[in-house]
Design a protein around this nucleic acid. Sequence first.
RNA 1: GCGAGCGUAGCACAAUGGAUAGUGUAGCGGCCUCCGAAGCCGUCGAUCCGGGUUCGACUCCCGGCGCUCGCACCA
Length: 600
Amino acid sequence: MQANRPRGLSVGMQVSFNPAADVEAAMLQAATAIGLDCARFAPEVRTADPKHGDFQANGVLAFAKREKQNPRALAEKLVAALDAVTRERYDVTIAGPGFINFALKPAALLTWLRAFASRDALKSGAATAYAGKTWVVDYSSPNTAKQMHVGHLRSAVIGEAICRLVAFSGANVIRDNHLGDWGTQFGKLIYGYKRWADPAALEREPIEELERLYKAGNDATPDGSPALDEAREELVKLQSGNPESLALWKTFTEVSQRAFDSIYTRLGIKFDHYLGESFYNDKLDRVYNELTELKIADVSDGALVVFHDEIPRFARNAERPNPFMVRKADGASGYASTDLATALYRSEHFKADGIAIVTDFRQGDHFEQLFLTVKKWFGAKNYHLPELHHVSFGAVTGEDGKALKTRDGGTIKLKSLLDEAEERAYAVVSEKNAELPEAERRAIANIVGVGSVQYADLSQNRSSNYVFSWDKMLSLEGNTAPYLLYAVARIHSIFRKAGVKPGEAETAAASLETPAEISLARKLVKFADAIRLATDTLRPHFLSLYLYELASEYSSFNNADKVLVDDPAIRARRLLLCARTLLVLETGLDLLGLRTLQRM
RNA sequence: GCGAGCGUAGCACAAUGGAUAGUGUAGCGGCCUCCGAAGCCGUCGAUCCGGGUUCGACUCCCGGCGCUCGCACCA
């Protein structure tokens, strides 16, 4: 997946959304001009450390080495062959053994800022990368009849950010909540429900009551007990379509859905589909039949399984065999079979070009086996094979490094976690801005509180575990949601004071002059690169980090250069910088799933 | 036992094989007659250990060590 890679020649045309694309094209053109074999020469243009420039081309070093040429001399020849537009737009220098550095000149920076003046302009710049692609994103996926807890947080937050990023890059995104709505737990739940259901409690706190009934059912059915046989009987009745059982199950699903929706609303999530495991019930036979017919699956100890002999740990002769369990020995389906049916449905029905499944890293083996199996199966049948991504993430831990629990060792419910975030944010807002009316402080606290929880997760590499800390995520300092939201609020404040809207009163802007102005503009131009990196790697933290650095750059600018000065040209160009910073921050935060504020 | 992920300043994090490894916090020192000081500026401080590949390694490979997790009918 190398979307948004520089392609084609755009030299001499309008500046690109991602100027690195222009540099790449110009380098290739220069290489051709001096007779280099472009099949063997890759310019390797990337964003540079600001002290070296905006972009750097590193490809000369590797190429010169391979061709036994002097890299420095080759770099000089290439630079001399660069076209006039590029030379006009960039200060080009050669450094060290043969790095070629490109620094945008202030006039070129201004051109970019004028060209990308709205969210639509940014989107149309970004949207070429995944244009025409359909992506299914499978995230959140809680079990029905249970409350969402802290373990469901990362999938929901990271998954939503990925949906927005991929959509911004031009894909048609299908948000699919693969609910755990079918399985052995429903036998025990129905068993408990029929004996101990409390109608008043079901009315008042339906999910909590279902959890209590499941627990009661589970406690009453220990291994080997006659009660367990009864619970299994309930499961058989449900799976064979008994109307009474199905009606109960349907109620459980609806009650669960309402509870989930209230969480999703707070997190700004709206699914297109809730195709849970139950949806695939009638699609499993085809999986069994085709895998058997193709001899991809074997019967082992009575179960239908797939071994992948090319991967030692999934091979049939492994020390401890770890087969992919398609159908259990008792004939029941497992999650492997529903996941296989799901992959097929997404390929055939949604025509998916990409599938991203957002679950924790512990399921890594499962998805590796799933993807191996899908590739063999689809390959043999000539089915359309989407890109398959397991978007995995680490655990949420307490400050002791262990899984996050309540003080008394219980599971933290997502609802109470979000409540606490809002309460804590309310306390901070009330302290900092006591003069605001209470209703406004509440509204601010909701956005800051939930945003802080989301951002804490999104600001770090999803692969590692993350340490949950209220104090850090709600802090006003450092790479946090409050810091970013504060920067946004301050910019709005300047426009209020100026009496103009963002985007207005900037036509008189002539050229950027001060170091702080230029530094901020250079950061703004790199938005495209941050989007590309975050999207292609499915790692939102690259965008978070960029936004934080942008906000930090803005704060320095805001401190160094007064915006609302009398000189109309200076005022106009600084208002322009404020407007674009605001646009990029608000667009970027929205892509992460955060709401922003005009005042906080 | 086998396997996977992770290991970067006191703490929490970043680094798309590139230049002197960035940032926050904590510590120290500055900046409010000035658009929001919830801010800005300066300073101190780190790649788990040992080999290898490369012009160049936090990054890739091999061997250790540590933490977390997974290993047949739960998802």
